[in-house]
Design a protein around this nucleic acid. Structure first.
Lengths: 245, 245
DNA sequence: TGTGAGACTAATGTATACATTGTGGCCGGT
DNA sequence: ACCGGCCACAATGTATACATTAGTCTCACA
């Protein structure tokens, strides 16, 4: 969120509550949301409910109906796959623009710091997934900034706001942490290679690497979909999909 | 607009009015929009004004301020260039997915019809720019559909809603029609090649061609920016940029 | 049995009054 | 002269009452 909202307005609190429900899979795709019922349930008037619903449509979590109402957006498996693909395309473009336009020494130094931070997580006795996730988020935030394109950064922010398209997607699956850690070493090599390509002004290489890097999330989706649906329901990053009828 | 709105509500009319002003360059980027003043000016209450403003933020034509208000989004030249680049990337991705996933015979037949339609515009005695624009829009709409990705189609719709990133961008510049017609023959060759690549399942070729195809808009921007600003102001597709202080 | 029309109810659109917050200007003190 | 605090006004947040529209169900007719 680029803008700091007024804290604790009714609309803001309703927005947060409803967003959490949708992302957490508690509101199945296709569910009609009604102003009056929600106002009653949340104990506020219709006005802030409408404001919150409009914001959720802005975030593409709700679709508008022809009658002026709102419905929870449905995500099919193909939508998840395509959203992940789109993230790869956008981050790939960010990497390419960074390589084409060149980046500052300060950015490269920041990248080096982040890479060292991630390396440090691997060297610790116990793998700290939260620390990895934090460094990982910083890496991806920097990558977007390196493009020096506010337009692109804005689009990346939009897409990566969805849990399954986030750079941290699937890191929150407690049942597969040991397996995940094995793949994160590869991911870190990719981080290093992307920065190397950017430093060397290799646009095509940078784009290709960043696209492939994002594809890890797709592999996770495919893994989870090849197993029992029950397994998927324990994965926060895919909760929104579990909610699809 | 995927959804049909209620016709002629105050909010809808305010939305249309304000959108036209912004896209037409009559509201400079950075302009604060105030509910009360707009309500007074439009002769309606604040409620539909707020709804319209929220919709415009959804369309990314307005940014939200920290105080809960709205400000007209500023577009710098670099933003225009990057948005056009993004359109190329997205349409390139659509072409690649179409090639990778394959398309139906019906889609290919539709493409052939459109290509014939465009060819017909070139064969006429007087070049009909409006007819060309209509066929061109159909081509690009089909291209997005060929990806068979609702997620991607949605993003393409978002980006191409901006005048300078529209497939029809700059076709509306009355002062340069003769020059433009010369470049449209090249564009039509590109249309043909894109469909050929898709038919042949050549993903990389299709993506590259579609990206290059979108780059024509960038050449138009660069041409206009290398001439007097006064020239630019007569170009509807760039009106929104002319409005930037 | 199917279709169309009408009635009723619920959902959304709108205006307005009041509450709360933010911003700018002015005044006083250092 | 500059900075901080206070006050007033404007902007936004909210609730509520009323208006309008959309959707669904039932009945009647072909």
């Amino acid at each position: 969120m680029a803008t700091e909202e007024r804290s604790s307005t009714h609309a803001q609190r309703a927005l947060i509550t409803l967003r959490q429900r949708i992302l957490g899979g508690n509101l199945p795709g296709g569910t009609r949301l009604f102003e009056v019922a929600l106002a009653e349930e949340l104990g506020i008037s219709r006005t802030p409910v409408r404001a919150a619903l409009s914001r959720l449509a802005e975030e593409a979590l709700l679709d508008r109906t022809s009658g002026g109402g709102f419905v929870v957006r449905s995500f099919a498996v193909a939508d998840v796959v395509d959203t992940i693909e789109l993230r790869g395309v956008l981050e790939g473009t960010a990497a390419r623009l960074a390589a084409e336009r060149g980046v500052t020494e300060a950015m490269l130094a920041e990248a080096a710091t982040i890479l060292r931070g991630i390396d440090g997580v691997f060297l610790a006795d116990a793998f700290d997934m939260e620390a990895y996730s934090r460094w990982n988020s910083q890496f991806h935030s920097l990558l977007a900034r390196m493009s020096q394109s506010p337009v692109l950064m804005r689009e990346i922010d939009r897409i990566t706001a969805l849990p399954f398209a986030s750079p941290s997607a699937f890191l929150d699956d407690p049942s597969r942490q040991a397996d995940l850690v094995k793949t994160l070493a590869t991911a870190q090599e990719q981080h290093r290679a992307i920065i190397d390509a950017i430093r060397n002004r290799e646009g095509y290489r940078a784009e290709s690497l960043a696209r492939e890097h994002a594809r890890a999330a797709r592999r996770n989706v495919e893994f989870l979909l090849s197993h029992e649906p029950a397994l998927r329901e324990g994965v926060p990053s895919l909760a929104i999909l579990a909610a699809t009828d």
